[in-house]
């Protein structure tokens, strides 16, 4: 795809010029309010009808007097809403634009409402887009760091297709823990990162019956340095301690450790490779890393293979899910079988 701008002697696409004559309409922008312009905005006429349909913003990011970021936002269909954005950047500030991207809003599900973005990127500055991808509202928000209010969000979260523990279809004499009761304490985390906070909250609620606000605990953990878009494995006990639970951190744990803790009225927070237990992510080419924390709330020995029962905040169907012991151990192995025993 050709560049959309003509920047005089510096940037030419050889065929199209959208900014000619715009110099007299340039508007300085002072982001930091220090009286010194940080950027310049100018109207663009992308369809060449003589009527501006967008704005190009030139920014000197590093303050060396040279523009190193240029962004154009355009209303392509004349409905008064910006639906196309193009960006050029000089990331290493050597005077040559080495990154460009173009994003266009689109209606993915065809219901007439804009609900996604198609993004094309040229990461090496050769003016050829190497990647093109379509993202829904949630993905675009993650990618861009911007929650576009014009995009209709997806209403469904991720479901892994777990089988849930059912006390009526098992021999309860063969079950350790109180998975049916603990399932009531399950909560969906809705965003990436705070799984260990949720796992601790679910464990504490299950032991005490108290209702704890996970968001409040995320704030506490963030303030204390226990959480930064994720939790270090050795910090998986901090919120439990903050709430007043007694904990014991361990590595190289095994099923016997889990059984004893549950039998003694405790709960266990374990670090696992979530991809190995999320059936819905079988097609993901993921490395073996501990990337998730879940609460162990029971073990069901009634079948041929024991089932480890988890409250998993990472999926919408994660309450009292049954994971075969072998599958659970594979997932747990990636953290070196790290775990936190908690007691009220």
């Amino acid at each position: 795809m050709k560049a959309f701008f003509d920047f005089g002697n510096e940037f030419e696409d050889g065929s199209q010029t959208y900014l000619s004559g715009a110099n007299s309409m340039m508007q300085p922008i002072d982001y930091d309010g220090d009286g010194i312009p940080d950027a310049i905005a100018t109207p663009v006429d992308i369809d060449g009808d003589g009527i501006p349909d967008g704005v190009a913003t030139y920014e000197d990011v590093n303050g060396d007097g040279m523009f190193d970021s240029i962004m154009a936002t355009v209303d392509t269909n004349g409905d008064g809403i910006t639906d196309f954005t193009s960006v050029y950047m000089d990331q290493n500030f050597d005077g040559v634009m080495d990154y460009s991207a173009a994003a266009m809003e689109l209606d993915i599900n065809g219901d007439g409402i804009v609900d996604g973005v198609i993004l094309a990127e040229d990461a090496d500055g050769d003016s050829v887009f190497e990647t093109t991808q379509i993202m829904d509202a949630e993905e675009w928000a993650w990618y861009s760091g911007y929650q576009d209010p014009m995009l209709e969000p997806s209403e469904e979260g991720f479901s892994a297709g777990y089988e849930q523990f059912d006390p009526d279809s098992t021999n309860m004499d063969q079950v350790v823990g109180d998975p049916a009761g603990d399932a009531q304490c399950w909560d969906y985390q809705e965003e990436n990162g705070p799984c260990a906070i949720y796992a601790q909250v679910m464990a504490y609620e299950a032991m005490t019956g108290q209702d704890i606000d996970p968001d409040e605990m995320i704030e506490v953990a963030t303030e204390q340095g226990w959480y930064q878009d994720g939790t270090a494995i050795t910090d998986m006990d901090k919120i439990l301690n903050y709430l007043g639970a007694e904990t014991e951190f361990g590595v190289n744990g095994d099923m016997e450790d889990l059984h004893e803790c549950l039998e003694n009225g405790g709960r266990i927070v374990v670090a696992v490779d979530g991809n190995e237990i999320w059936e819905g992510n079988q097609d993901v080419y993921a490395p073996n890393n501990p990337n998730h924390a879940v609460t162990v709330i029971g073990i069901d020995y009634s079948g041929e293979e024991p089932m480890v029962i988890l409250n998993d905040s990472g999926t919408m169907d994660g309450h009292a899910i049954m994971v075969p012991e072998s599958q659970f151990m594979d997932a747990w192995e990636d953290s070196g079988y790290s775990y936190v025993e908690a007691y009220a």
């Binding site: 959480y227 494995i233 590595v251 990337n291 998730h292 924390a293 070196g336």
Partner: peptide
């Protein structure tokens, strides 16, 4: 490395190794 104490203590879960 992935399961040693330095990583357990200092790197939040969810970070993968290159």
């Amino acid at each position: 490395i992935n399961t040693n104490d330095v990583v357990r203590r200092n790197i939040p879960m969810g970070r993968g190794m290159g």
